[in-house]
């Protein structure tokens, strides 16, 4: 083998790059079963079926924003019942800090919603409207 020190250095650099997830976190990667950690919602059923909600809740909130803000529709009927078209409807069953925020932090998702909208994680009281 020619230029042995360079080649060994190169291979080590290659292996170090592959091990990136370990050294950028200083070896601190925690396996977490997030579904066991989340606070259990109070209600019986969600706006749509639970599996659909887990993947599409942001789509639903987008749709709701459009309905409430642009079309003025404040009541919606789905297969599971009648709901206020409002974010506060979510907090009736879901604990923001231990459900929404926890999972978003686990996934490293930063919704832009809270730049304008209220969530119970903020230091104000939630007001439910009829």
């Amino acid at each position: 083998m020619y230029h042995k020190p360079y080649v060994i250095l190169g291979i080590l650099a290659f292996l170090a790059l592959l091990a990136m997830p370990y050294w950028v976190t200083a070896g601190n990667i925690k396996y977490e079963d997030i579904h066991k950690e989340l606070a259990k919602p109070k209600g019986v059923n969600c706006v749509e079926n639970v599996k659909w909600m887990a993947a599409n809740h942001m789509e639903l909130l987008n749709k709701w924003r459009e309905m409430a803000v642009r079309q003025g529709i404040r009541i919606t009927h789905t297969e599971t019942g009648t709901y206020n078209v409002s974010l506060t409807e979510c907090w009736k069953c879901h604990d923001y800090n231990h459900f929404c925020k926890k999972c978003h932090e686990f996934m490293d998702v930063r919704p832009v919603c809270w730049e304008c909208h209220y969530n119970p994680g903020m230091p104000f009281k939630t007001v439910h409207f009829k």
Binding site: P21, Y22, I29, K30, Y31, E32, D33, I34, H35, K51, A54, A55, N56, M58, E59, C103, F106, M107
Partner: peptide, 22 residues
């Protein structure tokens, strides 16, 4: 096609921590 990412992340973590997923 929106998918439930929480399971994807748990799967990815199980790979990297050598912790077989349920």
């Amino acid at each position: 096609v929106k998918i439930d990412l929480s399971y994807v992340k748990m799967f990815a973590l199980s790979i990297i921590t050598f912790h077989p997923p349920s």
